[in-house]
């Protein structure tokens, strides 16, 4: 187990370097000048030059790249160009909102998706299965931001059931504000999860040992919940883990629609204002998530599936 972890961590180093380089390149292809963004279109040239020097933007690109990589590897993100606040603080402020949204969406997605998927599989081609499959297809086709906008129009604005924007204060209020955005992403996740659950359960139900269990006279419920589900768990959990990444990226548009702070918002805003340190930090954190989630899923695979332990 420890060997696997070490191996994966070593593997992550070139990944990190490639990602950092791509981030750097992407930022420097971006047209637009941070100094101009800060001082506005009617700023005087002398002031722009002065500010560029202060931000270190007048140094050769190679030097800027080296500084960037060195800082990023130490997770030393520096200060925002815009308001000079330490990036670590800005991250600490934004990250929880994205994490709570992702977790909320995942919980809702699992709560809705897994039962539907199981019922769908065990009552194959029944009414529930048919309805669930249509719903899942719809869920996979509908753009998340459209679903969010519809909720906003009908549930918040039309019926006034939910708050309109922001994140709320205090635990209950915060959950209340979280619900619609999490439901939006959660429904889309549920579509994915129910399909995945259905197909894995179906597959497991077709396997020999299930047939054996049935032949041994075990009750159908027991067969399904004891044997089939346990064995279907692994692919579902892995799929779920990887889908966290798409929920994370889906949060960008959802944060925009629902006026929530968060990592995605921070990133898009950073791009718009050419706040390089913000964008760099945001992407590095995203990349960290990606590496981390993949690592966790690998380890989970190993832990749940003894056959992989020696691999």
């Amino acid at each position: 187990m420890i060997r696997v972890i070490i191996q994966r961590l070593i593997d992550a180093i070139p990944t990190a370097l490639v990602v950092l380089s791509l981030v750097f390149i992407a930022l420097h292809i971006l047209p637009g000048d941070p100094a101009q963004a800060i001082l506005g279109e009617q700023a005087t040239p002398a002031q722009l030059a002065l500010l560029r020097a202060r931000l270190g933007l007048d140094r050769p690109l190679v030097v800027q790249y080296a500084v960037f990589v060195w800082d990023a590897l130490r997770l030393h993100f520096g200060q925002s160009y815009m308001n000079n606040l330490p990036i670590s603080g800005i991250l600490a402020e934004n990250l929880p909102y994205t994490i709570e949204l992702t977790i909320g969406a995942t919980i809702l997605g699992v709560l809705m998706g897994v039962p539907v998927g199981v019922v769908s599989a065990t009552h194959r081609d029944g009414a529930v299965d048919y309805g669930a499959r249509v719903a899942a297809l719809l869920g996979l086709a509908v753009p998340d931001f459209y679903l969010g906008a519809l909720f906003l129009i009908f549930l918040s604005l039309g019926l006034g059931w939910f708050p309109i924007n922001g994140v709320g204060e205090g635990f209950v209020d915060r959950l209340y504000h979280l619900f619609l955005p999490a439901l939006t992403l959660g429904l889309i996740k549920a579509a994915f999860v129910s399909r995945l659950t259905r197909s894995t359960v179906l597959e497991v139900l077709g396997r020999n040992y299930v047939r054996t269990a049935r032949a041994k006279g075990l009750g159908e419920t027991r067969v399904i919940y004891w044997h089939a589900l346990r064995n279907a768990l692994l692919p579902v959990v892995t799929g779920l883990g990887l889908s966290i990444l798409s929920t994370l990226s889906g949060s960008v548009a959802i944060e925009l629609i629902f006026g929530r702070p968060g990592l995605g918002r921070m990133l898009i805003d950073g791009v718009a204002t050419r706040d390089y340190p913000i964008v760099q930090a945001g992407l590095v954190v995203f990349a960290l998530f990606v590496v981390l989630v993949n690592l966790l899923m690998d380890l989970l695979n190993v832990a749940l599936d003894p056959r992989q332990r020696t691999a």
């Binding site: 047209p31 637009g32 101009q36 963004a37 279109e41 791009v271 718009a272 050419r274």
Partner: peptide, 12 residues
């Protein structure tokens, strides 16, 4: 139609 910062920059 470009983003605002790009427009400012390219205008200048």
């Amino acid at each position: 139609i470009v983003d605002h910062t790009t427009m400012q920059n390219d205008n200048r």
